Amino acid sequence: MRAIIIAVALAVVGVQALTDEQKEKIKAYHKDCSAESGVDQDLISKARKGEFVDDAKLKEHLFCFSKKAGFQNDAGDIQEDVIRTKLNAELKDLDATNKLITKCAVKKDTPQQTAFDTIKCYYENTPTHVTLA
């Protein structure tokens, strides 16, 4: 993985930068959120390839993941400081990090839509991408 989920997903983090403990946490988040949301695993596979299907369970999964990763709180508010720290650790360019946050971390009508759109935006605007598990 080279991007964070803010995701994904938000956050953008390189696989090489992740410790084994962090990788295990991500796998656990994915497993827990899959069980919670009931998301079709094919939709997760598609999202990993950049095809974000407009599906309520996928959005719920991404919101769950975003909360566990600290990118959104329970109310769905974006936690920019967390995202900035994790994203800049990978990009090593605060200006680029801030531009990406301004472009992608935008509150939508629901927390689920915010997570979905934010993660999709990060995916589309970073050179390398996150996998969700």
Score class of each variant (00 low, 15 high):
residue 38 G to D: 08
residue 94 L to S: 12
residue 34 S to Y: 00
residue 58 L to W: 02
residue 114 T to E: 09
residue 111 P to G: 10
residue 60 E to K: 15
residue 117 D to E: 15
residue 44 I to Q: 00
residue 76 G to M: 08
residue 30 H to G: 05
residue 90 E to D: 11
residue 127 P to H: 07
residue 84 R to I: 13
residue 80 E to I: 11
residue 129 H to P: 04
residue 125 N to R: 04
residue 60 E to C: 12
residue 72 Q to N: 07
residue 75 A to W: 00
residue 19 T to A: 10
residue 73 N to A: 09
residue 37 S to T: 08
residue 81 D to Q: 14
residue 53 V to L: 03
residue 10 L to T: 10
residue 117 D to T: 09
residue 121 C to W: 01
residue 24 E to Y: 00
residue 27 K to E: 13
residue 4 I to C: 06
residue 20 D to N: 13
residue 46 K to F: 06
residue 117 D to C: 04
residue 86 K to S: 09
residue 114 T to A: 09
residue 85 T to L: 04
residue 31 K to L: 06
residue 53 V to H: 02
residue 41 Q to V: 11
residue 110 T to R: 04
residue 41 Q to G: 02
residue 78 I to A: 11
residue 115 A to I: 07
residue 4 I to A: 08
residue 26 I to M: 12
residue 56 A to I: 06
residue 101 I to N: 05
residue 51 E to R: 07
residue 51 E to C: 01
residue 87 L to V: 14
residue 45 S to M: 09
residue 20 D to R: 09
residue 49 K to F: 01
residue 7 A to V: 06
residue 121 C to V: 03
residue 72 Q to K: 11
residue 48 R to Q: 13
residue 129 H to I: 10
residue 133 A to E: 14
residue 5 I to L: 05
residue 69 A to G: 12
residue 31 K to V: 04
residue 46 K to I: 06
residue 122 Y to N: 14
residue 57 K to R: 14
residue 70 G to E: 11
residue 32 D to C: 00
residue 9 A to W: 01
residue 81 D to F: 01
residue 120 K to N: 08
residue 103 K to E: 15
residue 97 T to R: 02
residue 104 C to I: 11
residue 94 L to N: 07
residue 101 I to M: 00
residue 32 D to K: 13
residue 123 Y to L: 02
residue 73 N to R: 06
residue 123 Y to N: 12
residue 80 E to S: 10
residue 24 E to Q: 15
residue 3 A to M: 07
residue 36 E to T: 10
residue 85 T to E: 13
residue 109 D to L: 09
residue 52 F to V: 11
residue 66 S to F: 03
residue 91 L to M: 15
residue 9 A to V: 04
residue 48 R to N: 15
residue 37 S to Q: 06
residue 78 I to Y: 03
residue 67 K to N: 05
residue 46 K to Q: 14
residue 82 V to F: 09
residue 2 R to T: 08
residue 40 D to E: 11
residue 19 T to F: 01
residue 88 N to M: 07
residue 127 P to E: 12
residue 69 A to H: 05
residue 55 D to N: 15
residue 8 V to T: 11
residue 87 L to C: 12
residue 64 C to E: 05
residue 28 A to W: 01
residue 1 M to E: 10
residue 4 I to W: 04
residue 66 S to Y: 03
residue 42 D to T: 15
residue 49 K to L: 10
residue 100 L to R: 05
residue 46 K to R: 13
residue 124 E to K: 07
